[in-house]
Design a protein around this nucleic acid. Structure first.
Lengths: 282, 282
DNA sequence: TTTTTTCTGAAATATTCTTTGCAAAGTTTC
DNA sequence: GAAACTTTGCAAAGAATATTTCAGAAAAAA
């Protein structure tokens, strides 16, 4: 039950001191959820014992239990995931799709907060000026590499998908220079080859753009540009929705950066398609 | 200064234990802001002493000081005034990311209305009982094929990725029967090979699950099961977020359908990984 | 290899937080 | 106005949390 409701119920049994405590708690529940009993007491101008006794009067075993309730409320209220889920999923338990949708929406909202357009502009500018864009990702990230490979090529970038095997990777890196850019993906299960690859990029003065989740800040050596935000979770595993949104935004930003090239390369694509009509579905 | 920034700065001095702690904290900062040192330690799987030492390494006098910083961040982030300010700031026209996020969210909400859990259950049951699952998609859909290929294999399904070229496709189809299932993707630019492929599936009595967007209902011959919802749009092109969410829900439903197989195949995967350790990143 | 340094966990210690018994002050009831 | 009851603050005991020290293990350097 919500703390506020609990208090309402017991309202008549509240002493003056209780009331002062309650007032402090309800005035700023978020901050209050962090306070210790003595902190509450100080703010309410009562003795800490009164705080403890109020908690007990409200049916808690002690003050920490009251605070835990407050914390739960804060979390369910603040966490976009929880909010959306409550709104969407009546019976989220057996409606898996609703649960996923809720999580994804929450994660996307977070994303809009964490990654700024400035960062995207900077990244797009790097890609735009690159002679070639090398793409690297392993595990599930290959799906994103695939996607970006297509999109970037359509925008007129010369791309190069780096393989995952050590030998081939090394071979591809030979012609790697400061005019190129490395666009890499790193998610929770960090690919083993990423570190040496970044190291190499540093040595070659190749700018690196890293798209990542919460492990982003831990990746070393540090990339030039880090675009990272926590991913949505579906059950046990994490989804690619958030990094994909970053990718999409990046491609759009790139297109805006240079209407000319993107458009003309699309036009040329049309022409070329005519000639190879046989290979690609329409 | 923000904790994440602080961590980024000190990154190079972080030990493995430090890193585990950092991961736990960054993965869910809101919840983490309530945790005690020993709670953090438990979640990160390290000793509490390591938590204290990390706090000190980051420049705090002790763990409580670190937590207080985290709490401050939560508060300033969550306070209504801040939220409003942020929402206004991002409403700016040139923030492409915000626009994309908005579109995606709208599309996801639609999805939750259009595809039912019953449909997912039916689809999952088909996949579960299949001898092999053949995957087909072209163009951007290959990213999803790639994704589903991995996920389904992890769940213990035998998969087969169908190639796009006419000859190879024909070759793969020879051993195609009624015990198999075809999982196909069809988006706005309908792949040219899809129609004959579906036709063939009908002749072979192979069940077909089609994941699609608005063109879904137009595809014929009609698939056994159609999971379709309009996709979000970013600028000119359409994104894969919605079909990807369908895929994720499908895999989750499949896992729930048979905890046994999914779990045991994951366990066997672990064992196998040990043997091939060299090939894959951790 | 050996030496040195760094890292980590266990245990001891210190600190902070919470609870409770008690007594004084204030209220209510008779 | 006195007895019974309630409320409150104080202080000390008790619990939890945080910090430090130390020793062994692991990694790096010699």
């Amino acid at each position: 039950m919500l703390l506020a409701q609990l208090i309402e119920q017991q309202q008549e049994r509240l002493t003056p001191a209780d009331e002062r405590v309650v007032r402090s708690l309800l005035a700023d529940p978020l901050a209050a959820s962090f306070w210790s009993a003595s902190e509450v007491a100080q703010r309410a101008g009562v003795h800490e014992a009164s705080v403890v006794r109020l908690a007990q009067k409200l049916g808690f075993r002690g003050y920490p239990e009251l605070r835990a309730t407050l914390q739960d409320e804060v979390i369910t209220e603040v966490k976009p995931a929880e909010r959306v889920r409550r709104r969407l999923a009546q019976a989220a338990d057996d409606n898996l799709l609703a649960g996923i949708v809720g999580d994804e929406i929450a994660a996307l909202q977070e994303l809009a907060r964490l990654v700024s357009q400035d960062q995207l502009d900077a990244a797009a500018r790097l890609l735009f000026n690159a002679r070639r864009v090398a793409l690297f990702g392993s595990g599930h990230a290959t799906a994103l590499v695939d996607l970006m490979d297509r999109r970037l090529r359509r925008s007129g970038c010369a791309t190069l998908v780096l393989p995952d095997s050590a030998r081939e990777l090394a071979e591809h890196l030979l012609a790697f220079g400061a005019e190129d850019v490395l666009l890499a993906f790193a998610f929770r299960s960090r690919p083993i080859r990423l570190e040496p690859l970044l190291q190499y990029a540093v040595e070659q003065h190749t700018p690196v753009v890293l798209i990542s989740d919460t492990i982003g800040p831990l990746v070393r050596p540090q990339p030039h540009l880090l675009l990272s935000a926590p991913r949505g979770t579906s059950g046990d595993y994490q989804t690619l929705t958030v990094p994909m949104a970053i990718c999409n935004a990046l491609v759009l930003t790139l297109a805006r950066l240079d209407n000319g090239r993107s458009l003309s390369s699309l036009r040329r694509l049309e022409t070329l398609l005519g000639r190879f009509r046989d290979n690609e579905g329409r």
